[in-house]
Amino acid sequence: MTLDFDRLRELRAADPTGISRALAERRRRDVIQGDGRLFIVAADHPARGAIAVGQNPTAMANRYDLLERMALALSRPGVDGVLGTPDIIDDLAALGLLDDKIIVGSMNRGGLRGASFELDDRYTAYDVPAMVRQGIDFAKTLIRVDLQDEGTAATLAATARAVDAAAAAGLPIMLEPFMSSRVDGKVINDLTANAVILSTAIASGLGNSSAHTWMKLPVVPEMERVMEATTMPTLLLGGDNGDAPDIMYSAWERALALPGVRGLTVGRTLLYPSDGDVAGAVDTAARLVHRNLP
Score class of each variant (00 low, 15 high):
residue 87 D to E: 15
residue 211 A to R: 14
residue 10 E to A: 15
residue 282 V to C: 06
residue 81 G to L: 02
residue 181 S to D: 12
residue 109 R to M: 05
residue 23 L to A: 07
residue 194 N to F: 13
residue 238 G to H: 01
residue 22 A to M: 06
residue 97 L to Y: 00
residue 258 L to Q: 10
residue 8 L to D: 03
residue 84 G to W: 01
residue 240 D to M: 09
residue 171 L to H: 03
residue 270 L to Y: 01
residue 127 D to I: 03
residue 15 D to E: 15
residue 204 S to Y: 02
residue 14 A to G: 13
residue 229 A to E: 10
residue 240 D to S: 14
residue 160 A to P: 07
residue 21 R to S: 01
residue 102 I to A: 02
residue 71 A to T: 00
residue 170 G to C: 11
residue 122 R to L: 14
residue 16 P to I: 06
residue 184 D to Y: 10
residue 210 S to E: 14
residue 198 L to H: 12
residue 135 G to L: 04
residue 222 E to M: 14
residue 67 L to R: 00
residue 55 Q to W: 11
residue 83 L to D: 01
residue 187 V to W: 06
residue 4 D to F: 00
residue 25 E to C: 10
residue 64 Y to R: 11
residue 70 M to A: 04
residue 189 N to Y: 11
residue 154 A to H: 14
residue 237 L to M: 13
residue 188 I to M: 13
residue 288 L to E: 04
residue 42 A to M: 06
residue 146 D to W: 04
residue 46 P to Y: 00
residue 75 S to W: 04
residue 102 I to L: 07
residue 4 D to P: 02
residue 234 T to H: 06
residue 240 D to W: 06
residue 126 Y to C: 00
residue 203 A to S: 09
residue 279 A to I: 03
residue 2 T to R: 11
residue 51 I to D: 01
residue 242 G to A: 12
residue 144 R to F: 07
residue 37 R to E: 07
residue 241 N to L: 13
residue 189 N to A: 13
residue 59 A to I: 04
residue 112 L to N: 02
residue 236 L to S: 00
residue 19 I to M: 01
residue 231 T to G: 15
residue 284 T to N: 11
residue 202 I to Y: 10
residue 256 L to T: 07
residue 246 D to P: 09
residue 107 M to Q: 10
residue 66 L to Y: 00
residue 188 I to R: 13
residue 261 V to S: 06
residue 159 T to E: 05
residue 127 D to V: 05
residue 181 S to I: 11
residue 157 A to R: 15
residue 68 E to H: 13
residue 246 D to S: 13
residue 185 G to H: 10
residue 294 P to H: 13
residue 167 A to V: 09
residue 2 T to Q: 13
residue 276 G to A: 08
residue 245 P to T: 08
residue 66 L to I: 05
residue 219 V to R: 02
residue 119 L to G: 04
residue 272 Y to F: 15
residue 234 T to M: 05
residue 199 S to A: 15
residue 57 P to T: 08
residue 254 R to A: 14
residue 83 L to E: 00
residue 86 P to S: 04
residue 289 V to F: 06
residue 145 V to M: 13
residue 185 G to Y: 08
residue 30 D to P: 11
residue 75 S to F: 06
residue 252 W to A: 05
residue 116 S to K: 15
residue 99 D to Y: 08
residue 113 R to T: 12
residue 157 A to I: 14
residue 84 G to V: 00
residue 233 P to Q: 11
residue 275 D to R: 11
residue 137 D to R: 06
residue 223 M to P: 01
residue 29 R to I: 12
residue 229 A to F: 10
residue 288 L to H: 06
residue 185 G to C: 08
residue 201 A to H: 15
residue 64 Y to I: 10
residue 158 A to M: 11
residue 212 H to N: 15
residue 77 P to C: 10
residue 129 P to R: 07
residue 198 L to F: 12
residue 47 A to E: 05
residue 230 T to Q: 05
residue 83 L to M: 09
residue 125 A to C: 10
residue 222 E to R: 15
residue 23 L to Q: 08
residue 19 I to Y: 00
residue 149 D to W: 08
residue 132 V to E: 09
residue 166 A to K: 00
residue 3 L to I: 01
residue 90 D to K: 07
residue 105 G to V: 01
residue 151 G to Q: 08
residue 254 R to F: 10
residue 142 L to N: 12
residue 292 N to A: 15
residue 19 I to Q: 02
residue 4 D to M: 03
residue 247 I to Y: 12
residue 21 R to D: 01
residue 42 A to C: 12
residue 283 D to L: 12
residue 226 V to F: 08
